[in-house]
Design a protein around this nucleic acid. Structure first.
Lengths: 212, 212
DNA sequence: AAATATATACTGGTTTTCCAGTATTTTTGG
DNA sequence: CCAAAAATACTGGAAAACCAGTATATATTT
């Protein structure tokens, strides 16, 4: 199955997920878990001094954005394969991860067999996806989004206040600017998300993990 | 630590979580995992023919609502302890689970020690919570919600269409009713969620797992 | 230093939401 | 069968969002 020993690293903020992955991988002799981390920056530091074949990487990490970590990993260690492991199945996120160099994309409800198969595939130089993910990627979405919107500091601030239910007038008072400025931020946010109104803006922000 | 053998059952839609829990629990002789399920209804069927000490129960299950399963378990087997294991830390959900009879509430980022400790506590007849959960429960929320809103079939239908970004006029056309009817549904939804506008409505609906 | 992006702010206007109250019909539960 | 809940619908009106375009100042990037 594996031509040689495969060295892996796990990054997930759930100790139980890490535990489960270790238990699963340990029943395969040639799969060797070198380390596990609950923070993204720790894996970057680790990779500076250690060569790793596969990183299994959660997207939602407490200290940073898994997508950025993915890009960083591929920048510093291009030969290292990255398999995203996440609950998110939004096409935008999947495409963004692939754009950032991910070799695989698994959902957390994947089976053991699926995980092992995925590791095999990426080690063979292939891309690997959970059941259903390929379908999500390939079928043109009814509402086609571009990449995940990149928000400025101010836009994110305004978005959070909108999500908290505040009106433009209240937000303007809070941020000491004109209500017309906030209206302009709203318009820009709607355009970036290709959203027709606040309902879609909030929903997509949630789905993309921009707000919790 | 445990006066006697503790029989447990795990219900979670993530095989990796189940794997992790099993690995963890198996290193404690007196903790005996009888079975695991990825569907809520399966655990109910199991409990009909088997006495269980502790059920570790995810709230988000694919076939049903973990909160309802919790209530069902406590109805049919009051002596069985239920520990919720979830990613949600909204006060409403925590209170609802306690209301439905849960004995513990853990977040999925809990450590191994925390889990074992929780099992110990519930077996001793105590309530048990993840770090931080007690704080969430005890501090009066800035925006105090009541219990998780119970939506009618029609209300949920309208909510989903609102979340999809449709206006009241469009929703009315879709459902073959007057736009004024939809406006009335909107008003009722805002009242049930104690939301001041659609932004809060959508945000809370996602936070409470009512829509995905 | 220059180009670009961001933040800010305005005019003028339409659409939509939110609000409060009221009323009737239909459905559901006891 | 009856009471209660849900669904439906209306009047009248204010507040807020959404829209399109335009403009200037500041910050950032090249």
């Amino acid at each position: 199955m594996f031509a040689k020993q495969v060295n892996l690293v796990i990054v997930d903020d759930h100790p139980l997920i890490i535990q489960g992955l270790k238990a699963l991988l340990s029943s395969h002799e040639q799969l060797n878990v070198l380390a596990s981390f609950t923070k993204g920056q720790d894996v970057i530091a680790f990779l500076l001094g250690q060569e790793v074949d596969v990183v299994i990487l959660d997207i939602s990490l407490p200290d940073c954005n898994g997508m950025d970590i993915c890009r960083e990993i591929k920048t510093m260690a291009p030969a290292t394969r990255v398999i995203a492991l996440t609950n998110h199945n939004e096409r935008s996120l999947i495409m963004q991860m692939l754009q950032n160099g991910a070799n695989g994309y698994l959902l957390k409800n994947a089976s053991s067999e699926e995980l092992i198969s995925s590791i095999t595939q990426v080690m063979n130089g292939q891309l690997s996806f959970s059941t259903g993910i390929e379908e999500i990627i390939t079928q043109p979405a009814v509402y086609e989004q571009g990449p995940v919107p990149k928000l400025t500091r101010r836009e994110l601030e305004v978005l959070k206040l909108i999500a908290a239910g505040e009106t433009s007038t209240v937000i303007a008072d809070r941020l000491c600017v004109s209500p017309l400025t906030i209206e302009m931020h709203r318009r820009n946010l709607l355009q970036k998300f290709k959203a027709k109104n606040v309902a879609v803006l909030i929903r997509m922000s949630f789905q993309l993990g921009l707000i919790k």
